[in-house]
Design a binder for these strands. Structure first.
Length: 339
DNA sequence: AATCTAGTCAACCGCGTCAGC
DNA sequence: CGCTGACGCGGTTGACTAGAT
């Protein structure tokens, strides 16, 4: 009987890179280096604090870590670091894996939709980066945090105001987010779209005589029952109005008059004009124009036709709304409804 | 070509929480 | 209960890079 071959770190790493379809990347560095590293490394023995490596990870370290995780799974990071022969802390290994090596990590510029989500969710949850990251599949909290600090805070600085000030919030609500909405709509196909695991969606009012006619809003869907659609709460944020609506169930949505359209709770124009003064002042400060985040970056490609099965129209709110096929309703989705 | 500056982002650090003992 | 270790989170740092001077 032939014994199963013991997987060396090199073999583990090769398997990982093969799985990720980036074997070329693996082959780009001398394969034998893996076994060399393993032989020369602590090879399962604890590493003294003085021997711990810090700073940027090398390709070889990445391969060791990725290969080990592929073979043994995540968790027990301190043990993993030792067992994999990495001269790193468990903490460092975990961070490297979660933020960089994980196969499902998405890299590259944020799409307008992701930018919009970040803004909206930050309004909602503040600096809860990991919570926000959960709504952006493939994005890490670190990436989102960096985006916020480098891009959003930069623009607050340009406007000479605090990023948490009401003025800056108003600028985002009235200028920045509507522009992102426009960009999303410009690139989306006229269909219902979704991205899994996101509770935020976009809505559009299509009633010709409605005060919200033709305007788009950002919505948050809360489903509060284990039974699909049994209790649905929709919160819609238009650039200058907020409506909170409740529905007994998605099936009741179209035309429901009982619980829908409660626009009074939080509705009303939040605009007090201060943000316009802010913009004007920023322009007066010497800038030809106030720049907003680079919407041209990123292509909104995460669109697919989704599981949403029926659409409806709510007369009391003049909103086109959607209901979803039940099996997916308990999972919040990002949807875009366009003309 | 050399130097400076600002922006970006990977990585680190400190702290809080939780589970196991 | 307190202690310890593992883990996760948010804030911060610093290396690197590109553009400006």
């Amino acid at each position: 009987m032939r014994l199963k071959q013991q997987r060396t770190p090199r073999l583990q790493a090769r398997a990982y890179f093969t799985d990720c379809r980036i074997l070329d990347h693996f082959n780009s560095f001398v394969p034998k280096v893996m076994d060399t590293i393993w032989m020369e490394s602590s090879c399962g023995r604890a590493v003294s604090a003085a021997d711990l490596r810090r700073g940027p990870w090398t390709v070889e370290e990445d391969a060791l870590l990725a290969g080990y995780v592929a073979a043994h799974g995540e968790g027990r990071w301190n043990e993993l670091a030792v067992a994999a022969g990495l001269r790193r802390t468990g903490k460092s290994c975990r961070l490297r894996w979660l933020n960089y090596l994980r196969p499902d990590v998405r890299r590259g510029d944020f799409t307008p939709r992701e930018q919009l989500l970040i803004l909206e969710l930050h309004f909602r949850w503040g600096n809860r980066w990991s919570k926000i990251a959960q709504e952006l599949p493939g994005r890490t909290d670190n990436e989102i945090k960096n985006y916020w600090r480098t891009r959003v805070q930069k623009h607050a600085k340009q406007l000479n105001c605090d990023v948490n000030s009401k003025q800056f919030h108003d600028v985002m609500r009235h200028v920045w987010m509507p522009r992102l909405l426009e960009r999303i709509q410009a690139t989306s196909t006229p269909s219902v779209e979704h991205a899994e695991s996101s509770p935020v969606y976009l809505m559009k009012s299509s009633a010709p005589n409605s005060p919200l006619a033709g305007r788009s809003g950002i919505g948050m869907c809360h489903s509060s029952s284990s039974r699909a659609c049994s209790s649905l709460s929709l919160e819609v944020q238009f650039p200058s109005n907020q409506l909170v609506m409740n529905a007994g169930g998605a099936a009741d949505w179209p035309g429901s008059e009982s619980q829908c359209g409660n626009g009074s709770a939080q509705s009303g124009d939040m605009f007090d004009g201060s943000w316009l003064e802010l913009l004007a002042r920023a322009c007066d400060d010497g800038a030809d124009s106030v720049l907003f985040p680079d919407f041209e970056l990123g292509v909104d490609t995460d669109t697919t036709s989704g599981f949403w099965s029926t659409s409806g129209y709510n007369s009391s709110t003049d909103l086109q709304v959607l209901s979803a096929s039940s099996s997916y309703y308990q999972r919040p989705h990002l949807i875009v409804l366009s003309d």
